[in-house]
Amino acid sequence: MLVLAVDSSTKVGSVSLVSTERLVAESLLHLDQTHSQRLMPQLIDLVDRSGYELDDLDGIAVALGPGSFTGTRIGVVTAKTLAQSLGLSIVGISTLKAMAYSLKYTSGYICPVIDARRKRVFTGLYRTSDEQLRAETEEALLAIDDLITELSSVQEEIYFVGEIIQEYRAQISEQIEGTHFITNKFSLPQAGAVGELGIERLVAGDEDQLFELTPNYLKRSQAEIQWEKNN
C-alpha cells in the first residue's frame, strides 16, 4: 500500500509518500510563503523524484488541523480533490496527533501545542499504551493560563511539542513539575507522521467519507461568536 500525505495546517508545509514497509519520501518547507504558492509544486516534485506515478497510490492522508484556517483548507481541499479525481481512499489525521506521534516511544504524557494567537493554543494530551498513541483528552482551544492550571495536577512527566511552547517555557516550568520541551525537528508537524498514522487506518479499513471530511477548526468564526452574544 502506498499513501500520499499532506500537511499545510501551520507555517510548516510538508508532503510525504509512505508505504506499508517504510517512509519513501518526505519534504518539509517551513516558510512564510503561502501554502497556495508552494504546496502543489512541492507535492508534484516529491512524486516525480520518488519514481512513483499517481496511479501507484492507494490512498491519501491529510492533516485536518487544528491550526491556520486557510492553510488547513488548502491542504484538505487539495487532498480531497486528488482523492476524488483519482478515485482513492482518504483519511484525515489530527495535526496535534501527528505532532505527538514523533514522540510515540516516550513514557509520560505528550502535549502537542499549536499557536492560536492572543495567548491561546490548540492542544490535547496524548500518551502511548500498548504501543498505541492515544488521546487522553479532547483536543481544545485553551488560554495558555488555563492549560497550565489543568496540567499542574498531572503527576507524571509531560513532554511539550510545538514551536510556540518556547514562548511560555519559563511560565510553564515555574508552575508545573516534570516538564520537558522538545526543540528539535520533532517540534514541527510532519507529513511522514501523518502518512504513517494514515496508512495504519487505511490498512485497518478505517477510511473517512470523502464528502464528510472537513478541517478540525476547534473554533467557530468570529461572526458566529459575536452573533450569539448579541442574540
Binding site: 497556495s36 504546496l39 502543489m40 507535492l43 508534484i44 499517481l54 484556517f69 486557510t70 483548507r73 488548502i74 481541499v77 487539495t78 487532498a79 480533490t81 486528488l82 479525481s85 483519482l86
Partner: peptide
C-alpha cells in the same frame, strides 16, 4: 474573498495535476 478563491484554486490544481 481570498479564503473562497483558495478553495477553488486548490481543487482546480488537484484535478489538473491528477489528469
Amino acid at each position: 474573498l481570498v479564503g473562497g478563491l483558495l478553495v477553488g484554486i486548490s481543487a482546480a490544481k488537484a484535478i489538473a495535476y491528477a489528469h
